[in-house]
């Protein structure tokens, strides 16, 4: 079978001497971003271990467990401040003093994600928030936010590089890490996302853009047309999915799979992008939730009804006729005709 690697014993590569230490901390997370990261092809996970970074702590795959794992974090703070890259995956819950996410034990007491991120984040060389949850809050901070979750930036008073995605595309994360390690901080946009990956909307890069322009729309999932009418969030979403595609082999992406983009990299995901199969998000006012379509329909109905009732009232009370009678008191032929009509109508009443 054509497996390229695995025949050489795994040991640090030539480039690894300058490799910075890496801490990948899982807070309130599903682990999806780390799993997605494992799907990276070139460079892959093993290239990261061998050449790119000195991977000290990675909650998903590390051998150490229990206090042995937590000690690594403590050592980082004392021996390598300002040197390591901190990657945080997941939201930071604040409810019950952060006890909604515990990452380990310290002196017999639970070490909360809130405390760990604050301590490690302050002394890190770079802080990377991987996944939409860490970057913006994402699904776990969605209404009603049961754990009081916050994104990483909200608990740290320093620059955080956001690499959103639900999950993150392996290339976005690997690319950001490589950039940090080899070329320093990448150019960021106003949401602190690397422009390299989040520089253009999915809509503008979409292979099916010409279907949109020409109004060729899919009516249901599974049809090979533009997904706009079944809620595609491509126009609202900055990511390079159509070009890059998913995963390591770049085989497909949601629209290619005949489904709408749900805007999973967005700061408003999922509340500001849901319902996923509707064009506009819900309108939420205190105590009320209505769909945007319903607001439109109700306003239109109220407008038509209001005008209709007022018009009927004006006719019945004779105000309309009066207004026109007053106006057309001139002597032109056309005016006379109108006058006659109005008079006849008024008499009838």
């Amino acid at each position: 079978m054509p497996i390229r690697i695995g025949t050489e014993p795994l040991r640090p590569g030539k480039l690894s001497r300058s490799a910075p230490p890496l801490i990948w901390l899982g807070t309130n997370t599903c682990g999806g971003d780390a799993v997605s990261f494992l799907n990276s092809l070139d460079p892959g996970y093993l290239d990261l271990l061998r050449d790119l970074a000195d991977c000290r702590y990675l909650y998903l795959t590390m051998t150490a467990e229990g206090d042995m794992a937590t000690r690594i974090l403590d050592e980082m703070l004392t021996t390598l401040p300002g040197k390591y890259i901190l990657v945080v995956e997941g939201t930071i819950p604040t409810r019950s003093n952060g006890l909604y996410s515990v990452v380990g034990m310290r002196n017999g007491e639970p070490l909360t994600a809130l405390q760990a991120v604050r301590e490690l984040g302050t002394k890190a060389r770079y802080v990377v928030a991987v996944g939409t949850c860490a970057a913006f809050g994402g699904p776990f901070a969605a209404m009603p936010n049961p754990s009081g979750s916050l994104p990483v930036q909200a608990v740290l008073d320093r620059q955080v590089i956001n690499v959103p995605g639900c999950p993150v595309n392996p290339d976005w994360m690997m690319g950001t890490l490589v950039h940090l390690i080899r070329f320093g901080e990448p150019e960021l946009d106003s949401f602190n996302r690397p422009k390299l990956f989040y520089g253009e909307t999915i809509h503008n890069l979409c292979q099916r853009r010409h279907y949109f322009d020409n109004s060729l729309f899919a009516k249901q999932p599974g049809e090979p047309w533009c997904m706009y009418q079944i809620g595609c969030k491509g126009p609202d979403t900055f990511a390079d999915c159509p070009y890059r595609q998913w995963n390591g082999e770049h085989l497909s992406w949601p629209v290619k799979a005949n489904t709408p983009c749900i805007g999973c990299v967005n700061p408003e995901f999922p509340d500001g992008n849901a319902p996923f199969f509707e064009h506009l998000p819900d309108v939420r006012l205190p105590g009320v939730r209505v769909t945007a379509d319903r607001v439109g329909a109700l306003t239109a109905a109220a407008t038509v009804l209001g005008i209709g009732v007022h018009l009927a009232g004006s006719i019945l009370t004779g105000r309309l006729a009066h207004a026109f009678k007053q106006t057309f008191s001139g002597s032109g032929a056309r005016t006379r005709l109108l006058q006659n009509l109005i008079q006849r109508f008024s008499k009838k009443r």
Partner: peptide
Amino acid sequence: LEVSRLAHELVTLLGGKAP
């Protein structure tokens, strides 16, 4: 590592992305 990635590529072929 490679083979499990390949299994996720299977999901991607029919589901657009994985996970």
